[in-house]
Design a protein around this nucleic acid. Structure first.
Lengths: 296, 296
DNA sequence: CTGAAAGCGCTTACAG
DNA sequence: CTGAAAGCGCTTACAG
């Protein structure tokens, strides 16, 4: 009989097994975009970790509340197609999450706390990252330090900005209004902001960019204008985008433990699924400052 | 009764429905890496198209034959968890595919033909892309044209190189051995190759890079060495990486119809699943040459 | 047109 | 320890 099984290379029917056992063998990942380097890192790490445990990963994007609602809609409900969900999308509206909670679907939030929801979370200490990045800029002697933030719908972005402001405050420094810019995690926004500074003659000494895309844009504008980096302008980004280490000058950045976030998020979720962990608790990972050639 | 359904926001059990109907409502995507801009574009487009049709997407990476075998292994078989599979990973070894074929699992190959397998494919005309990119370089007056290829396990890379060689041949030109470099789709390889040319005093007039990562590396090395682009060195990449349009100078490239590949691949696969299309046939998409500031 | 029954292909608790 | 039966929660073909 076993020989025959090998012979016909029989595979047990997954749907029947799922129905009988109540486990799908799939884990869902909901994230805002497939184009962001950090998110892709986390996704890749999660995929690897899941594969090692014999799980498959269902990926779906949702960047807004309506997108999430749609995933909760009748004939497109992701909840019971998976054993649990890793959620990286910002949750301005919680009704989708509440529905999942009500159905007791195991959930882990990635890169955001959402304190009111009492859900297990895996985050990076963005306040610390923003604070330390700014401190390095201050210690290198910069007097006029600027910050270009990411989109404020991301908790991570808001906290980096808070860390930046606190570092300045602690060191008795101020930031000019024109040097505190609400950006959006794009190269374009870094470029345009720097051009604006250049045009108005208010280029700062140093910039803390809320992600590496922004930093690339700042560096591009500086290079085009012949501004020496890091002598005249220091730049530090965030994420450790693969290109930061490869370009010349290499770009200083704050490395997020993306690999760890994906792996730990998976471990935690699988423990919850297997009733080996509680459905609460915060895990905060530390980022690492990587000083390279765009800072003094 | 219907009111009660709304009330308790009931969702039918997916596993039971799958078992009864024989449809999972999931489509699998197998790709070599989550870090490549083109692949991410295709994935994103496929995800969007699938979502519109009420399907979810299971993503799994496999870059080598053993990886694929693993997906065919007993307790990790992806075949019956999905209604069909979109396969972007190179298939040097076909046994995994043969197994899927034997089980009649709908399959669409993306970005590769694999003629011997008689499977429906959606590809881009890479020979044409390589030929046209090179022709543009020739027409701009370049005499010494170099090429840095991607990894030869990719059919797409091999065909771009073939297009490059044919364009030279057709125009009665030759390529020096040192200017035909086997690379690997990385910034590092573009950078190192260009440095090597510089160090040996054999910098070409123009480079056709098999992807934009390589082109970024070439441009970075040229900038560092003070080589004027495009006056002394023209560069054209491949993929239309988001950064190519944003950096200064903007990077000439060959735009792959990634969005179309993802969307069309999904449409075709769903038609096969719904018995509305045959399990054969080639669809070849045309790339578009985007001449920007790194070519004359 | 409605409603009860069989069947999808497993797993697991239970009888032998 | 082995094997037959019940059950997982739907869908669909069929009887009424």
């Amino acid at each position: 009989v076993l020989a025959a099984i090998k012979e016909l290379n029989y595979t047990p029917n997954a749907a029947a097994r799922t129905l009988a056992r109540g486990k799908t063998g799939m884990v869902g990942l909901i994230l805002p975009s497939l184009f962001d380097a950090f998110m892709t890192d986390v996704m890749s790490s999660a995929e690897k970790a899941l594969k090692e445990k014999g799980y498959f990963m269902a990926v779906t994007t949702a960047s807004s509340a309506p997108d999430l609602e749609e995933l909760g809609a009748a004939n497109h409900f992701i909840g019971d197609r998976v054993d649990g969900l890793l959620i990286m999308s910002p949750l301005p509206d919680n009704s989708f999450i509440l529905e999942l909670k009500k159905k007791s679907i195991p959930l882990v939030l990635l890169d955001q706390h959402q304190l009111n929801l009492q859900l297990p979370t895996v985050t990076v200490d963005n306040f610390y990252g923003g604070y330390e990045a700014t401190k390095c800029l201050i210690h290198s002697g910069a007097k006029k330090i600027a910050h270009i933030s990411g989109s404020s719908i991301f908790e991570s972005s808001r906290e980096r900005t808070a860390g930046f402001l606190e570092a300045l405050r602690y060191h008795g420094m101020q930031v000019d209004e024109e040097h505190l810019v609400n950006g959006d995690f794009t190269v374009m926004c870094g470029y345009k902001t720097t051009r604006m500074w250049l045009d108005r003659g208010i280029l700062p000494d140093a910039v803390f960019a809320s992600d590496d895309n922004i930093a690339f844009g700042v560096l591009d504008a500086a290079r085009e204008a012949g501004i020496p980096v890091p002598q005249r302008l220091s730049v530090i980004g965030y994420d450790n985008h693969p290109f930061t280490a490869l370009f010349h000058p290499s770009v200083s950045t704050v490395k997020q433990p993306a690999e760890e976030m994906g792996r730990y998020g998976v471990d935690l979720l699988l423990d919850i699924i297997g009733h080996k962990a509680r459905r609460t608790g915060r895990t905060v990972l530390k980022p690492a400052i990587l000083l390279r050639d765009t800072t003094r």
